[in-house]
Design a protein around this nucleic acid. Structure first.
Lengths: 145, 145
DNA sequence: ATAGATGCAAACGATTTGCAGGGTT
DNA sequence: AACCCTGCAAATCGTTTGCATCTAT
């Protein structure tokens, strides 16, 4: 369902071109350490004199996302925010009980909770196991639930 | 900054009315255990023959949210999903790896986290397993660690 | 009778996309 | 020259809101 991997035969070389606007977006992402929305990033660029259309900002962010160069998450109001990727913490898996598809998820709240309860009860060297399963959207839609 | 608390003098009684549509929304929230978006909830109602406008569903959910009757979070695509604040406090155990002493602990943060990650990724019927182990204070003191 | 509630449709704000022209390779 | 990329505007989509009407109280 993703990354069909490179081409089979002698295929068309790097099909992605480097342009002024992409460089501008990358530079901005580099400069801004926090999470920013596409709109905010666009405003930053405009303010800096960089002329890049909002559509291009969205398209570039989408690309960076696919390439795993940026992280994204939703703000409470639903706006998506991005940040250049800083690979971190250990994660757990959310597994579909039907097709066994697994999604990586971070479990910071759980790590914290585990450490806390252990500490609260005087336990040392805490260790934990966490497993979350469910029925993924595809399987549910296909009635495979 | 909120809930100005009841009225000072002899003021206008309960200003919120109970209506057929609010009851329908509440019933649906009661019936549906997982997180649902306003649109989905609206579809459920329509399918069940309940006639409630989408706008009213949104307004009612907003109210329930302000009253703290429902939880909300954003799905990956930015759509907001809601769930009646069910405090189904089931508990887990903290086990000593040396003497197998077990302590009951509540894991609300974990329950919430599990439900949240499942919802955020479109998984339904979430289920989870959590195990925390460590070395209890006694065993550690006795050098049995 | 009165003020809150509802339905409908228009308004909104974020994000996406079709299309024609422009720039990179 | 070939094809990707960009800009612009129109289209989507979830959610909010104005307004006339309805109804619980």
């Amino acid at each position: 369902m993703s990354s069909p991997s490179p081409e089979a035969a002698g295929s068309p070389a790097p099909r992605v071109r480097s342009t002024r606007q992409k460089a501008a977006v990358d530079a901005a992402l580099e400069r801004i350490e926090d999470f920013v929305s596409a709109q905010e990033l666009h405003a930053h660029l405009k303010e800096a004199g960089e002329r890049v259309s909002l559509a291009t900002v969205y398209r570039t962010l989408q690309q960076r996302l696919e390439d795993g160069d940026v992280d994204t998450l939703r703000r409470e109001d639903g706006e998506a925010v991005y940040r250049r990727c800083a690979v971190d913490a250990h994660h757990h898996h959310l597994v579909c009980r039907v097709c066994w598809t697994a999604v990586e998820v971070t479990a910071d709240p759980v790590e914290d909770w585990a450490a806390r309860v252990a500490a609260e009860h005087g336990f040392s060297s805490p260790r934990h196991t966490v497993e979350v399963t469910g029925v993924c959207a595809d399987c549910a839609a296909a009635g495979r639930a």
